[in-house]
Design a protein around this nucleic acid. Structure first.
Length: 866
DNA sequence: GCAAGGTC
């Protein structure tokens, strides 16, 4: 018996050989310098085995010669032009190796990654091997991790290749090619002919790159459309032993001047402040989760200020040198038998973090937290060797991964939080202090900040006359433009691209000059160019059901692929339907393309509707802004990096004010009175911190909600949410990017689609009213506190009884839901793949937050992607 | 000259 085993990449071939041969294989070179052939005898199967690999896809698809040249045909013909699939240009040596190695073998065993693309790559391998060995028996080894038990089991129990999955991928390949090529040729030609500035530009269209552009434009337009709203609040401070403590009004702020004034006057008339409560409770700041590709790109782009593409390139390079583990992974949990100690030991000699690593080795080790994602193919990203000779960005990326790994193996930081509640004329004010008791992981993970904030020793029942009691004015702040980290998050949530391609799509829209990056202070923002806005606006004007710049098209493609995988549809059915449908869309777009041309022309000439908008796409990416921002690009009034620039300094205490101000006018007006945001968002504490923005969203106490930012190392880190400013029992919680009243864009609480590289489970949670369910977090004290569930998006009165726990499979009879409703079965639409949490926009991660009552976001305004 | 998906 002779068996040829083929893995998806050289590293897996090596690992499999190592395990199956017990390290006793012999290695031969192949025609490709990266690919080796490993030979050994495998007792269990009584077989001579050769293990080799490909390097991803082996074939490529393109139109036949008659259609390949741009001038050769009408772009509309590309919807049914013949497509030729052949070994890719650079795949010759690998294909030759397979042809040679397949000769004389009895069996071909496919060891590609166990996902949809892996199944397709397997079918490519089979077709190449059959060229020289038509009778070879083709089998598929299924494994979830490169650990001996699994690999031996997979070798002994091979299954068949899953034809449906490779069919689904083939359909995707064809559709992307037809759609991309037809639209790219059409719009490039039309625009080149009609807009002189674009004569030499390629204006590409793609089902991933355009929605990516759509996100950037949409946020930009929200920023432009923002109208600040004035609010008022009462500010209080108390002096004890020469030390002044600021107190925050429990109502946050009100948009009603007379109401605020009335309350303020009461305070002024009876200014005595009584300490109503002093509570001390332990608090924690959680150590980071194990690192996924998307999280690496998001967090490192923010902390190291590199583009996601650059980070992935560096990580790839460090991987190829053996310094890091495979950097394309969705997994944020380590296998139980992962060998942490060997890796930690390797780091003990480092001058910067060696001592910390040693402390872990000496008993400080604590098993990392487990995230919710597991691609069953790769572990979280971690350092595989200790390296000292790196420089520049390589060094910084390596250091980030290493510190994060060590931090994840450590303990949460611990502290004591003090909350002081004071009452003045029936109005409640709070101050919060923090004493850190154990820094633990913070010692090594220097990117996280958490600082002590001392409060004087207040005691319940004490009375004070406030040193300052003022009515102040502030303004809601403009949302900020998207950062690359934000965009990676949006794409991930909407299923645009995969962990391996998200960065590339962002790079594409930058390369095409649809989007410019703009450095502002310490943050890099994405600004759509006039060309980018013109394109999106132009297509929007044509008014398709499914806008070409929105994520639905991709979502639909994914769903139809799942249908093929599940046997509800076939490749041919899908292709037929989509091709007919999108040929129609194409013809309509072409017929109405004048609108795109005019829109693009208008924006390029500065006559677009958002005339202050957009960077010029002529290559000058900085200074072509006009309008209200005074020649500057649109910018949020919020300072990008740390919480807010709204009236920084306006917390400007009225030093010297020794008594409450007398009644009457609010003190100060204009910009300088903007409320200073409590901007300790990076170091506040383990709770979603006060990142604090003001808004027109109200919480359930009908107090204006405040915006905060998740700082915990969860998949939601950096994400903004609205919550009640003071009272956790109020329970109001809403993600800012879901709230129409908030600052950010809606990120889709609807069904999450899983891109190609991912397991193909799609949830479309719909409530009994057939609306897209929204997720909430239990706030009520009890065993379920912090747990996420899904419910009807309607207001409390109109809400149906739909209820599902986020973390439970269907068929679960879960405990009683917070509203007393019983859980219902999850509307799970597919599921041969790994079950994963999806539709995460509403509440993944563990931002310990509160449950939303009436979601104003669900009632107000339009969901931007619909 | 076009897409998106693998991977070196």
């Amino acid at each position: 018996m002779e068996i040829l085993c083929v893995a998806e990449k050289p590293s897996i071939a090596r690992a499999i050989s190592q395990i199956l041969s017990g390290g006793q294989s012999t290695t031969r070179d192949s025609p490709n310098r990266f690919t080796k052939n490993y030979d050994f005898y495998y007792d269990e199967l009584r077989a001579e085995i050769t293990v080799t690999s490909v390097a991803g896809h082996l074939m490529e698809s393109d139109f036949s010669d008659d259609y390949r040249r741009w001038e050769s045909c009408d772009p509309a013909d590309l919807f049914d032009a013949p497509i030729i699939t052949a070994v890719r240009k650079d795949g010759g040596p690998i294909a030759r190796n397979l042809e040679i190695e397949a000769r004389g073998k009895n069996m071909l065993m496919i060891w590609t990654d166990c996902d949809r693309e892996g199944e397709h790559i397997g079918s490519e391998v089979a077709s190449v091997c059959r060229k020289t060995n038509a009778r070879i028996e083709v089998k598929r080894a299924r494994f979830n991790a490169i650990i001996p038990q699994q690999i031996h089991h997979a070798a002994r129990h091979p299954v068949e290749l899953d034809r449906r999955q490779s069919d689904a991928v083939e359909a995707r390949i064809q559709l992307d090619l037809r759609l991309g090529a037809a639209f790219t040729r059409m719009q490039t030609k039309m625009l080149q002919n009609q807009v002189p500035d674009l004569q030499r530009k390629m204006i590409s269209y793609g089902p991933c790159q355009f929605p990516t552009l759509g996100f950037v434009v949409s946020r930009y337009q929200q920023v432009q459309a923002f109208v600040p709203e004035t609010f008022w609040y009462i500010y209080l401070s108390i002096m004890v032993d020469g030390e002044e403590t600021d107190f925050t009004w429990r109502r946050g702020h009100l948009f009603d001047f007379p109401a605020t004034l009335a309350l303020y006057e009461l305070c002024v008339e009876s200014p005595e402040a009584t300490i109503a409560q002093v509570t001390k409770k332990p608090t924690k700041k959680w150590r980071p989760l194990p690192l996924t590709t998307v999280e690496l790109q998001k967090s490192a782009s923010r902390l190291l200020r590199l583009t996601p593409k650059r980070i992935l390139d560096i990580a790839d390079d460090l991987y190829s040198k053996g310094f890091l583990s495979y950097p394309r992974t969705e997994t944020d949990q380590f296998d139980p038998d992962f060998d942490f100690m060997t890796l930690i030991q390797k780091q003990t000699t480092d001058p910067a973090w060696g001592q910390f690593a040693q402390s872990l080795a000496n008993g400080g080790f604590n098993a990392p937290r487990k995230g919710k994602k597991n691609d069953k193919a790769h572990p979280p990203i971690h350092p595989t060797a200790h390296v000292t000779n790196l420089v520049g960005d390589d060094k910084r990326v390596y250091e980030y991964v290493t510190r994060r790994f060590l931090a994840s193996c450590s303990k949460d930081a611990e502290g004591q939080q003090t909350t002081v509640t004071v009452i003045v004329a029936g109005e409640e004010f709070n101050a919060t202090g923090l004493t850190i008791t154990q820094r633990n992981y913070l010692e090594v993970f220097t990117y996280d900040k958490w600082s002590d904030k001392q409060l004087p020793d207040f005691e319940q029942g004490q009375h004070f006359i406030p040193v300052v009691c003022e009515m102040r004015e502030g303004q809601t702040s403009r949302p900020s433009l998207l950062t690359e980290a934000d965009l990676v998050g949006l794409m991930d949530e909407n299923g645009i691209g995969t962990d391996a391609t998200i960065a590339q799509h962002i790079q594409t829209i930058i390369d095409r000059e649809y989007v410019m990056t703009r450095q502002e202070d310490s943050m890099k923002y994405l600004v759509p160019s006039t060309l980018g806005i013109g394109l999106v606006e132009g297509y929007n004007k044509i008014g398709f059901d499914r806008s070409l710049s929105k994520p639905q098209l991709r979502r639909e493609t994914e769903q139809r692929m799942v249908d093929i995988c599940e046997g509800r549809s076939t490749k041919n059915d899908m292709l037929f339907q989509f091709i007919e449908q999108y040929r129609e869309v194409f013809l309509r777009a072409r017929a109405a393309f004048r609108q795109v041309v005019e829109s693009v022309r208008d924006y390029l000439n500065g006559d677009g509707n958002v005339t202050e908008g957009g960077a010029s796409s002529d290559g000058d990416d900085n200074d072509d802004f006009g309008g209200e921002n005074g020649g500057r690009p649109p910018r949020g009034t919020r300072a990008p990096a740390r919480g807010g620039n709204r009236g920084a300094g306006t917390r400007g205490r009225a030093r010297g004010t020794t008594a409450p101000r007398t009644r009457g006018q609010p003190r100060g007006k204009g910009p300088s009175t903007k409320r200073r945001q409590d901007d300790d968002s990076d170091d506040e504490n383990s709770r979603p911190p006060r990142g604090a923005g003001a808004t027109a969203v109200s919480c359930r106490c009908d107090v204006p909600a405040v915006e905060r930012t998740v700082v915990k190392e969860t998949s939601n880190k950096g994400r903004k949410f609205w919550t009640c400013p003071n009272d956790p029992s109020c329970g109001f919680f809403e993600w800012a990017d879901q709230a129409s009243g908030g600052s950010a864009s809606k990120t889709g609480a609807s069904s999450r689609t899983i891109p190609a590289k991912r397991t193909h489970t799609v949830y479309a949670r719909r409530c009994k009213c057939d609306l897209t369910a929204v997720s909430r977090t239990v706030v009520k004290e009890g065993p379920n506190r912090g747990r996420i569930f899904w419910t009807c998006p309607n207001s409390e009165n109109a809400r149906c009884t739909f209820f599902e726990w986020d973390d439970e499979q269907k068929e679960m009879s879960g405990p009683e839901c917070p509203n007393g409703d019983q859980p219902t079965k999850r509307s799970r639409t597919a599921g041969t793949g790994t079950t994963r949490s999806s539709g995460r926009a509403g509440g993944r991660g563990r931002a310990k937050s509160t449950r939303g009552g009436t979601s104003r976001g669900s009632k107000r305004g339009k969901q931007w992607y619909e």
